[in-house]
Computed example of a mutant assay.
Amino acid sequence: MSNNSNNGTNNPLLVQMTKDELMQDFEQIVRKIVSQMQVQQISKDEKETYTRDEAAEYLNVSHSTLHNWKKKGILMPFKMGAKVYYSKDEVKARLKIN
């Protein structure tokens, strides 16, 4: 007795589409991702402070570089509770110097 039921769990669904249809689907996905990235960037720009991860990402440097800059007095973080933050204005000023 063979179990050839087509319940969709073991059998992939293949869909035929034209190149244009595929490109339209791909463009919609890319637009959605770009839109989400823009929303995330806007919310970052509205922040007054950056976490260590955000500052490193924004400046495209490692955590070690941030630490070295702190030791040299180049970019000074501050603490709120146990967390380390960087001033948005100082981070943006540092970006212009690089």
Results as ranks from 00 to 15, higher is better:
Val15Asp: 03
Ser87Arg: 09
Thr18Asp: 07
Tyr86His: 02
Phe26Gly: 04
Ile97Gln: 13
Met80Asp: 12
Ile33Phe: 07
Lys72Ala: 15
Gln24Trp: 03
Val61Ser: 07
Leu95Phe: 06
His63Trp: 05
Val30Leu: 01
Met76Leu: 14
His63Asp: 10
Ile74Gln: 12
Pro77Trp: 03
Thr9Ile: 10
Met76Glu: 09
Gln40Leu: 11
His63Ile: 15
Gln36Ser: 03
Leu75Asp: 10
Leu22Val: 08
Glu21Tyr: 08
Glu27Ser: 08
Glu27Cys: 10
Asn3Glu: 14
Ser62Val: 01
Leu75Asn: 13
Asn6Asp: 15
Ser64His: 04
Lys83Phe: 00
Gly73Cys: 09
Asn11Lys: 07
Lys44Gly: 01
Ser87His: 05
Lys88Gly: 04
Ser62Glu: 09
Met76Tyr: 04
Lys79Arg: 15
Lys71Leu: 10
Asn10Phe: 15
Ala93Gly: 10
Met76Gln: 08
Gln16Leu: 14
Asp25Cys: 06
Met37Leu: 13
Asp20Cys: 00
Asn6Val: 08
Lys47Ala: 06
Lys92Cys: 02
Asp89His: 08
Val84Gly: 05
Leu59Met: 02
Met17Asp: 01
Ala56Gly: 09
Tyr50Leu: 05
Val84Arg: 13
Ala93Cys: 04
Val30Ser: 00
Asp45Cys: 08
Asn98Ile: 10
Gly81Val: 02
Asp89Arg: 03
Thr49Asn: 05
Tyr58Val: 01
Ser2Asp: 11
Lys19Phe: 13
Thr9Tyr: 09
Ala82Thr: 15
Glu27Arg: 08
Gly73Ile: 12
Val30Ile: 13
Ser2Lys: 15
Gln41Thr: 01
Leu95Gly: 03
Asn6Tyr: 11
Glu46Leu: 14
His67Asp: 13
Ile97Phe: 01
Ser62Gly: 05
Gln28Lys: 14
Lys79Asn: 15
Asn98Asp: 02
Thr65Leu: 14
Met17Ala: 14
Asn6Glu: 13
Ser87Ile: 00
Pro77Phe: 03
Glu57Ala: 14
Lys88Arg: 11
Leu66Met: 12
Met76Gly: 00
Ile42Ser: 05
Ser64Met: 03
Ser43Pro: 04
Ala56Thr: 07
Thr9Asp: 04
Ile97Tyr: 03
Thr51His: 03
Met1Asp: 12
Met80Arg: 09
Asn3Trp: 06
Val39Asp: 12
Thr9Glu: 10
Lys19Gln: 14
Ser35Pro: 03
Ile42Arg: 00
Lys79Cys: 12
Pro77Ser: 07
Leu14Trp: 12
Tyr50Val: 00
Phe78Ser: 08
Ala82Leu: 14
Trp69Gly: 14
Arg31Trp: 06
Asn6Phe: 07
Glu90Val: 02
Leu13Ile: 11
Glu54Trp: 07
Glu48Tyr: 07
Lys92Met: 08
Ala82Cys: 08
Val84Phe: 03
Ile33Val: 15
Ala82Trp: 13
Ile74Asp: 11
Leu22Ala: 11
Tyr85Ser: 04
Asp25Gln: 07
Leu75Trp: 09
Arg52Phe: 02
Thr65Cys: 10
Lys79Val: 11
Ile42Phe: 06
Thr9Gly: 04
His67Gly: 10
Phe26Cys: 07
Ser2Asn: 12
Val39Lys: 10
Phe26Ala: 12
Met80Glu: 13
Asn68Glu: 13
Val61Gly: 07
Ser2Leu: 14
Ser5Ile: 04
